[in-house]
Design a protein around this nucleic acid. Sequence first.
DNA 1: TTGAAAGCGCTAACAT
DNA 2: ATGTTAGCGCTTTCAA
Lengths: 342, 342
Amino acid sequence: MAVPGKTSRRAGIADVARLAGVSIGTASKALNDRGQLRDETRARVQAAAEQLGFIPSSVATSLLTGRTFTVGLIMTDHHGRFSLPILHGAEDALGWAETLAFVCDTRDDPIREQHYVRSLLSRRVDGIIVAGRRAEARPPLVLQRAPVPVVYAFARSADDADCSVVTDEAGGAVMAIDHLVRTGRRRIAHVTGPHGHASAIARVTGVHESLAAAGLSLVGEPWYGGWSEVWGRFAAAALTREHPDVDAVFCGSDTIARGVADGLREAGRRVPEDVAIVGVDNWAPVAEECRPPLTSVDLNLREVGHRAGRLLLQAIESGHTPGVHAVPCQLVVRSSSAPTLG
Amino acid sequence: MAVPGKTSRRAGIADVARLAGVSIGTASKALNDRGQLRDETRARVQAAAEQLGFIPSSVATSLLTGRTFTVGLIMTDHHGRFSLPILHGAEDALGWAETLAFVCDTRDDPIREQHYVRSLLSRRVDGIIVAGRRAEARPPLVLQRAPVPVVYAFARSADDADCSVVTDEAGGAVMAIDHLVRTGRRRIAHVTGPHGHASAIARVTGVHESLAAAGLSLVGEPWYGGWSEVWGRFAAAALTREHPDVDAVFCGSDTIARGVADGLREAGRRVPEDVAIVGVDNWAPVAEECRPPLTSVDLNLREVGHRAGRLLLQAIESGHTPGVHAVPCQLVVRSSSAPTLG
DNA sequence: TTGAAAGCGCTAACAT
DNA sequence: ATGTTAGCGCTTTCAA
């Protein structure tokens, strides 16, 4: 009995043609449903292809057509909290293996990035998606005069002639505040990440805007600190001391929010009865394990990736769509912001 | 002024040759440092290539040589907690853009997997890495008679003639227990995930083995439950009730461990003074935010990926290395298991 | 030292 | 309805 499952050489279209007793050109037509062929011939060729386990080489057709149906996906955050959803969204848009993505983790190192870009260009990718790590704009990719479409996702390009897809961070903050106001909260505080961080700034803007529209104002100043739980706990303790009447806290991240939840509980406040909490990221491992589970603003990164993928395909096929495209956030309500019981 | 940075068509070697005033063959030799050429000619060609921003097409050379310097990376867990470190390790092994990886997220769907495999084969990848989601063996990939090397990472192939790289789960448990015993703990309990889960089973085996070697035995039976914090909190409460003299808990995951830490604290036990805790995964967002920060068994997934990448390259270049290759775990000590103070 | 030509696997235009 | 041929961009003999 022969060794199953392996042949020494991969079957090419020439082998298929030979087995089917036709010319290579005829085989090509039969396999691609083109030209005028007798049904019997078509069937015979397809049977031969089947029998040989023939899978056409896309490298040959790429050479021919100039299109590879591959894209590069450059990611800069190696923990993948932001890049992965973007990747998944992009995969959706790229049609599940129609177009395949080379994933390149640059670890935020420009040298490595340049290295990867060159490698991608040499592989003749049809386009490149750059998935950023933060809300700040990033310098555009250095393409060596190669006319390859690029779409920036999450972190927009500093050059507005480029095409970028971002989340509407300020809009997310507006959603959070509106939700709190609509569920009866009036004394709302804001605990967030480092001063000067673009995401923090955008959210603070949204917070003020939304509160002003409701005729309210923030309890105290925004509390700037870090993105950690320990900062959240610390802030909660200080907050209840300085503003005992606070009835809601909007946090710049789920991690901070979880810290705030623990801090409030330990300060004797009930969540959500006494104080409601809303976070940002809707990051399951944090939002769902929080006590109580966290209402959170989802950044819709998957949709950002999907949009980026679609814009990239469009750029490849019809043309460039410059500008910054904002994807709205989405509020996911859990127990931490249930309406006040009273 | 001309539009900068873009040319309508990509420069090919023919353009370089024309600009340098040599034949295509000569240009090729000059650019690849082959053959016998006058230094001046070589320099002239390289200058021309530089000027045109020429980047050789690897699709042409792939067609020629049959090697694409690409691999497929199939991942099955879309949150990426396991796949991402594997990807990073593999990237290291694949030489930072020397060989590029197509990332395929199958969402654990066999149909999608088959789809991706076909797509990868048509792109003539040199090999495939399959990054599994759990410790259980998985059915081997269905390759349509294509002689493409495959390495399974984390979840081994059910066929032992395949090449798999896994973590030494039992060994990791041994490390945890040894650490606890060496730091003076004697009454050790084990709280883990679902009964029947392969990872849980392997760790329990290691636990018993290691305790027996130290002349000890487990406090009670292993506590099987879920992988969540809430299970950890529940287990901690029950554990302190049933075995008040427990002085250490080894947990099947960091998430469980964090729950246990909170549960113990709320039951009035001090961690690590009264009870030490060790988790598994060394997952930063959990291990570092835990109160106190968690000692944890690192699964070394990055090394698993690295090893898988190296084995794949080896399979491509020299030959197949069948069998299951185990990568040892590594204990990362933090405060939750500091030696007893008394 | 350089140029010319064949060929990698495939498609498409043209010939039969 | 089927076969033949040129050529995608490049490397590599072989000839000059």
